[in-house]
Design a protein around this nucleic acid. Structure first.
Lengths: 128, 128
DNA sequence: CCGTATCCGTAGGGATACTG
DNA sequence: CAGTATCCCTACGGATACGG
C-alpha cells in the first residue's frame, strides 16, 4: 500500500470517503444486500424492484448502473422481446458483503441506543 | 431482535439505512477515525480541526454535535477564558470503530480496482 | 419489460462574518 | 478558542412521462 493510500481519510481521494460516497447513497447498500441474499443466482430488474419496496424505477436503474460501472454488479441482457435483464454480484461485490454485514450487525445491535441517546437530549433541551 | 428490526433494509426506519445516513455524511467517518486514533485521550476542537484538513469550523461543529447527540462522542468543557472543549469517543463510539475499520480496510484494498473498472467503462463508451 | 429524460423540492455542506 | 448565523450552490433523489 502506498503512503498516499495508507490512511489519509483527509485526502479528497481517500478510498474510504469515496467508498462511503457510494454505499452511502440511499439504495446502494440495500441493493447489495438483496443481491447478496440471492447470490450466486441472478435477479431480474422487476424482481429487484419488488424486493426493494419504495424504490422508483429511475433510482433502481441509476443504482444498478453505478454498481455495474464500479464492477460490483454484473449485468446480463436476454435479447428477447421484451428484454429480460439479470443482475448478480461479482466477486468484488461479494467481497464487500462481509464488511457491510458487520456494519448491519452493529446497526441492529446499537441503533436503539442511539435513538435513546437522542431522546435524552431532546428531553434535556425542552426541560431547559 | 424483533421482526421489525430483523433485516428490513426496506423499512425507512431500517437501522442500517439510518446508520449509513449518519456515517455517510462527509466528515463523520473521518472524525470517528481521528478520535479513535487518539483514544482513550481527548482531543480539543482546534486540534481536531488541524487533523481534518479541509473541514470548516461550521462543519466540524455540526459533525461533533451530531455525534455527541447520538452518544458516540463525549464533550467536556473547561470553563476557562477562552474555553477549551475536549472530545473523545464513548464506549459506543469505540464499538463502531471495528466495523468502520473493516470498511476502511476493504476500501484500501479494493477502491483501485473500482477505479480501474470505471476507466474501462469510460474507454468502452468513448470508443464504442 | 427495462430503461431514459425532464422537472423540481429539499438537504448537505462551503464561505463568510459575527458572538461569548 | 469555540460556536452560531446567514447566504448560496449543488447533488440526491422523487414524480412523471416518454422511448426501444
Amino acid at each position: 500500500m502506498t503512503k498516499a493510500n495508507r490512511g489519509d481519510l483527509f485526502d479528497p481521494q481517500c478510498p474510504t470517503r469515496r467508498l462511503l460516497d457510494r454505499i452511502g447513497t440511499k439504495w446502494t447498500s440495500m441493493a447489495v444486500k438483496v443481491l447478496a441474499e440471492a447470490a450466486p443466482d441472478e435477479v431480474r430488474f422487476a424482481e429487484l424492484r419488488r424486493r426493494m419496496p419504495g424504490i422508483s424505477q429511475k433510482m433502481l436503474s441509476v443504482t444498478l448502473q453505478s454498481l455495474a460501472r464500479d464492477g460490483l454488479v454484473a449485468r446480463r441482457v436476454e435479447p428477447t422481446v421484451p428484454p429480460r435483464v439479470h443482475y448478480r454480484l461479482t466477486e468484488l461485490g461479494l467481497s464487500l458483503e462481509g464488511p457491510l454485514a458487520a456494519l448491519r450487525h452493529w446497526a441492529e445491535r446499537h441503533m436503539s441506543e442511539i435513538d435513546r441517546n437522542n431522546r435524552l437530549e431532546d428531553a434535556r433541551s425542552s426541560a431547559g
